[in-house]
C-alpha cells in the first residue's frame, strides 16, 4: 500500500517559486488500481517522479507499507526505490539490450547471480506472455510488447507498488486494452497497489478502481470510479463518460438526459418509463456498460410534454436521474466538454 500525505512540490525559490503539486493526499490499497487523470501541465509527471523518488517532495511524504520514503539519504533512496516498480512511457527500453537483458537490468544492479537472474527473467517474461520474444531487441517488438517488457522489468524486484507513468500513451486501442488487462491480472495475482497516471479518460474506464483528477497541482475530485460515474453532479464522472451527441428530439418532444445512479436499474427501463408515464419514449443517444461489475450509463431520450416532477420521480423509481434539457441544449455534454478544453 502506498499513501501520499500532504505532498507538495515547489520548484524554484522566492518570487520565482512555482508550486507544481499542492497538498496531495491519497492512498492506494493493496490490490487496488488508482488512476490519476489530468490535462498536460497538471503536474502528472512531477507526481510520478515524486512517487518513484526521482524527485524529493518539498514537503509532505510518500509512505510505502508504513515506511516514510521521503526522508531518506541518497543511498537509502536507492534501496527504497526497489519497493516501487515503474512502468515508463514507451521509450523506456534500452535499445542495445534484448527484452531479456532489459528485464534483467534491476537484478543486475542489485547484484543477483547470473543463474538466479536467468531464472527470474524467464519467469517474468512468461508472466507477461513474452517468453518467445526473450532475445528480441526493442525495435523488433510492437509498442504493446515493449510495454509488456517494461512491466516485467518493473516487477523484477518484487515491488509492492507499481507506478504506471503514461504507460499506455501512444499505444493503439488494442495494445492499450491488452496492457490494462495485464495490469488488472497482476493486481489480482500479486496484490499490487497500482498508481496509474494518464491523460486518457477511456483508459481510466478500463483499468481503474478509483480515480482522482489532478488540475493545476490540486486534486479537484476523487472517488471510486463507479461512484463518480453514478453521481450526476460529478464533473469527473461526466468527463469520464460524456453524454454522446444526441439526435434532435421530434416536434412536441423535450430532450431529457438520463443517468444511471443506482445499482438496480432494470434492463428494460425504457419500456418501464414509457409505461409509468403512459407516453412513448424516443431513444436519442445511449451508452451503457459494465465497469468493475457494475452497470453504469447515460442516455438522452425524447418525451412528449410530461409533468417534470412526475417524470423525475418515475425515473428515480427506476434508479435513474432525469434532467430536462432546455431547447438548444441537446448537446449539453458536448458543450461542457468543449468549455473544459477551452479552460
Amino acid at each position: 500500500m502506498i499513501s501520499l500525505e500532504r505532498l507538495t512540490k515547489v520548484y524554484g525559490h522566492g518570487d520565482r517559486a512555482v508550486t507544481v503539486l499542492q497538498d496531495l493526499d491519497f492512498s492506494v490499497d493493496a490490490g487496488e488500481i488508482f488512476a490519476v487523470v489530468g490535462p498536460s501541465g497538471a503536474g502528472k509527471s512531477t507526481l510520478a517522479q515524486c512517487v518513484n523518488l526521482l524527485e524529493r517532495p518539498t514537503s509532505g511524504s510518500v509512505v510505502v507499507n508504513g515506511e516514510n520514503l521521503s526522508q531518506l539519504s541518497e543511498a537509502q533512496l536507492r534501496v527504497a526505490r526497489r519497493t516501487i516498480g515503474t512502468v515508463f512511457q514507451s521509450d523506456g527500453l534500452f535499445s542495445r539490450r534484448t527484452a531479456a537483458q532489459n528485464v534483467a537490468l534491476p537484478l543486475q544492479y542489485l547484484g543477483v547471480t547470473p543463474a538466479e537472474t536467468k531464472r527470474r527473467v524467464a519467469e517474468l517474461l512468461d508472466r507477461v506472455g513474452l517468453s518467445p520474444r526473450a532475445s528480441y531487441y526493442p525495435h523488433q517488438l510492437s509498442g504493446g510488447q515493449r510495454q509488456r517488457v517494461g512491466i516485467a522489468r518493473a516487477l523484477a524486484l518484487r515491488p509492492s507498488v507499481l507506478l504506471s507513468d503514461e504507460a499506455t500513451s501512444g499505444l493503439d486501442p488494442e495494445s492499450t486494452a491488452s496492457i490494462t488487462a495485464l495490469l488488472k491480472e497482476l493486481r489480482d495475482d500479486l496484490g499490487l497497489s497500482i498508481l496509474f497516471i494518464t491523460h486518457e479518460m477511456e483508459t481510466v474506464l478500463q483499468v481503474a478502481d478509483s480515480v482522482a483528477r489532478l488540475d493545476r497541482g490540486h486534486i479537484v475530485e476523487s472517488g471510486r470510479l463507479v461512484d463518480l460515474l453514478r453521481d450526476p453532479s460529478s464533473e469527473l464522472g461526466l468527463a469520464l463518460k460524456p453524454v454522446g451527441n444526441a439526435r434532435e428530439s421530434g416536434a412536441g418532444e423535450n430532450s431529457w438526459v438520463i443517468q444511471y445512479t443506482s445499482t438496480s436499474v432494470p434492463t428494460n427501463w425504457v419500456t418501464a418509463l414509457s409505461e409509468a408515464l403512459a407516453v412513448p419514449v424516443s431513444l436519442l443517444a445511449a451508452s451503457i456498460e459494465t465497469i468493475n461489475g457494475a452497470t453504469v450509463g447515460n442516455a438522452t431520450i425524447g418525451l412528449p410534454h410530461t409533468d417534470e416532477a412526475e417524470t423525475i420521480e418515475a425515473a428515480a423509481r427506476l434508479g435513474l436521474t432525469a434532467r430536462r434539457l432546455s431547447a438548444g441544449r441537446v448537446n449539453a455534454g458536448k458543450a461542457l466538454e468543449n468549455s473544459e478544453q477551452a479552460a
Partner: peptide, 20 residues
C-alpha cells in the same frame, strides 16, 4: 529517459553511467 529508468531500477551512479 534512460537515466530515469536506471535510477528507478535501483542503479548506483556508476552503474547508471555504465549501463544507461
Amino acid at each position: 529517459s534512460f537515466v530515469r529508468v536506471a535510477k528507478a531500477s535501483g542503479g548506483s551512479p556508476l552503474q547508471i553511467i555504465a549501463t544507461a
